[in-house]
Amino acid sequence: MMRISMVGRGAEEELRSLRTWLLEDPKVRQHSKVFWETSQPQPGAMGADAFSVLQLVTDNFWQISTFSITYAAWRKTRTQAPRVTIEHNGKSVTIEGSDTETLERMIRSLSAE
């Protein structure tokens, strides 16, 4: 399972855009299911609204590198760049950019045993 969240200006719209992009990719549709995970803020936390996280439940053939390629293609179409946090198999990586080095770091971090 993979969880994707975003923080920053326009984060909610960008998360919705990523969800649409993922659902339009045949490889994603073939090997995973995409869900919204909505959580209420903790009492006393800043903000009164619930926040959403994308959750991908994948089959055995899914690869972080496949997701990374899809993510990179989506990210290149965006003018805004909210901070993205991706959690997978107990590991978490935060991305603040779309350059090749950042994406390679994401793949290494999430794929490491």
Rank of each mutant, 00 (worst) to 15 (best):
G97Q: 07
D49M: 12
Q80I: 10
A45P: 00
W74H: 14
I107N: 06
V53E: 14
L103V: 14
G44K: 09
T100I: 07
F67C: 08
Q80G: 02
S32T: 15
P41C: 07
V84F: 03
Q42K: 11
T94R: 08
W36R: 06
F51E: 12
P43F: 08
K76C: 03
D59N: 14
Q30T: 12
S68L: 03
S68P: 00
S32D: 04
M46P: 00
R105I: 10
F51A: 10
P41T: 11
W74L: 06
T94Q: 13
L56H: 03
Q80N: 07
F51V: 10
F67Q: 08
S92K: 14
F35C: 02
T38L: 03
D99T: 12
F61P: 00
V84D: 01
Q63A: 12
P43S: 11
K27D: 13
T79N: 07
E96H: 02
R29E: 13
S39D: 09
Q63Y: 03
S65V: 15
T79D: 11
I64R: 02
F35G: 00
S32W: 05
Q55H: 05
V57A: 11
R75L: 14
Q30F: 04
D99C: 02
A81F: 07
S92H: 01
Q30N: 07
V57S: 10
E104D: 14
L110N: 06
I107D: 12
I95R: 04
V84S: 09
L56P: 01
Q40N: 05
T85I: 08
T85K: 11
S111K: 03
Q30L: 13
V28Y: 02
E37F: 02
K33Y: 05
W74D: 08
G90P: 01
T38C: 03
S39Q: 14
V53W: 01
S111W: 06
S92L: 11
S39L: 11
K76S: 12
L103Y: 09
V57Y: 04
R105Q: 13
T100W: 01
F51I: 03
E96K: 05
A81S: 14
N89Y: 02
L56R: 07
T79F: 08
E96Y: 00
R78V: 01
G97M: 07
G44M: 08
T94K: 05
A73K: 14
A72D: 13
I86G: 02
E87Y: 01
